[in-house]
Structures are given as C-alpha cells and as structure tokens.
Design a binder for these strands. Structure first.
Length: 206
DNA sequence: CGTTCGATGCACT
DNA sequence: GTGCATCGAACGT
C-alpha cells in the first residue's frame, strides 16, 4: 500500500521514525528497483541550522515549503542527488532525507547503475548491502535524479510503500555530514544494520 | 586503524 | 567566487 499524504502531514520526527521499515519504489524505463528504508534524517524548519530553509526561502529549497508528500531532490557536491520526503503542513519547511536502503528488487540494475559512477571505473562489483548505503549511493542505484524533484511520493514512478513488513527497532543519534546542527539527535536508523551508512552506539536504541 | 583530499555542478551572495 | 545533508582513494601512524 502506497503511503498517503496524511502520513507525511505530521511532525517530522514521527515521519522519520515511521519511514524506517517502509519501502522506496522507483519504476523507471530501465526497470523497477526498491529498497527497505533503514536510515533517515529529519530537517525541521528555519530554526534548524542544517535545514536548507535556515536562510529563508530560495529557488532551490522552495519544495520544502510546499505540501507534504512531495519529493525534494537536489544536487550536492556537484555529484550526488539527495532525495527527501517533504513533511509537516504546507508552508512549514521540513523534510526527511533518505540516507540508506536495504536493496529488495532490481539488484542487477542497481549494480549496473552503480558501476557507471566515474570513480568506479575499473573497480569490482559493489557488494549487495553497499548498493544503497549512503544518500548519494542510493539515488544512483535507484536511478533517482533531479527530474524527480517535486514529484508526489503518493503516486507516479517514485513512491514509498508500506508492504506490511514488521517495524524495526529504531535508534536515534546525531545527524551525519553536516557542518552545523549535528548535535540534534535527528538521525533514525535500524541499529546495527549492514546497509546503514555509519555504525552507532547500540545503547541508543529504543 | 586514522586523516586528508580530489572529483564535480550549481545555487547563492 | 564560495561552499556544500558525499564518496572513496590515498596517504600517514
């Protein structure tokens, strides 16, 4: 079952927690890929220094201010597309960054896409559990690009689904890779999962 | 183990 | 011109 708008129109931390264990599905002309969400981060409002809305509304971050349930995709470091789910009420800038997946469907396609990365030239095959480990890696493996920016996650080629899988035990700790606001414990993950981009203290699991 | 650093493109100032 | 919500190789210890 595809998650509806009501799922996203809630406090962002609740959405981040509940996205763990859901399934991101991308239907592209090349084929279908999907993966279990095992790591996600919340970015909440103009008061969050790490949120793209921290400096107010701009051309790039406009999707954050839009209605919940849209995809916010942007290019980072000139190399990596990052995919977010817009949350909260229309006009309140917040989103959840999808950081890691456990690959479920379309693994051969994921391997082919990952192998195309310039820095992978001449390297061996990517191990299955690394195909979607990290936000840049997962968009490359899933074929998610800037063309998916502003697409509704509630219908169309890119969706997030509840496939009835058991809700995993969710651990919280500091967000990764940001210069400011890393102290906020807004990274949700499946503790100890192989596809999570960084290990954390198992004691923080709840 | 650890830290440094290049690749690469675009929004923002 | 600057600075990234990254990745992974190349070093140093």
């Amino acid at each position: 079952m595809i998650l509806h708008v009501g799922f996203y129109e809630r406090p962002t931390l609740d959405v981040a927690r509940d996205l763990i264990g859901k399934v991101l599905v991308h239907k592209s002309p090349e084929g279908v890929t999907s993966g279990l969400i095992v790591e996600a981060e919340a970015y909440i409002g103009e008061d969050d220094p790490a949120c793209h809305a921290a400096a107010g509304r701009t051309v790039r971050n406009a999707p954050l201010y839009g209605p919940p349930g849209l995809a916010y995709v942007y290019l980072n470091y000139g190399l990596h597309d990052m995919v977010n789910a817009v949350t909260e009420a229309d006009g309140h800038p917040a989103a959840v960054l999808i950081r890691a997946l456990e690959p479920l469907e379309g693994l051969p396609l994921m391997r082919r896409r990952r192998a195309k990365a310039p820095w992978r030239k001449g390297k061996g095959e990517v191990p299955d559990h690394e195909l979607c480990r990290g936000p840049g890696n997962l968009t490359r493996a899933m074929g998610i690009t800037l063309a998916d920016n502003l697409r509704p996650l509630t219908r169309g080629p890119l969706t997030i689904q509840d496939q009835g899988l058991p809700a995993p035990l969710v651990a919280w700790d500091g967000r990764i890779g940001i210069r400011v606001g890393a102290d906020r414990p807004w990274r949700a993950s499946v503790a100890g999962h192989r596809s999570v981009s960084k290990k954390l203290d198992p004691a923080s699991a709840r």
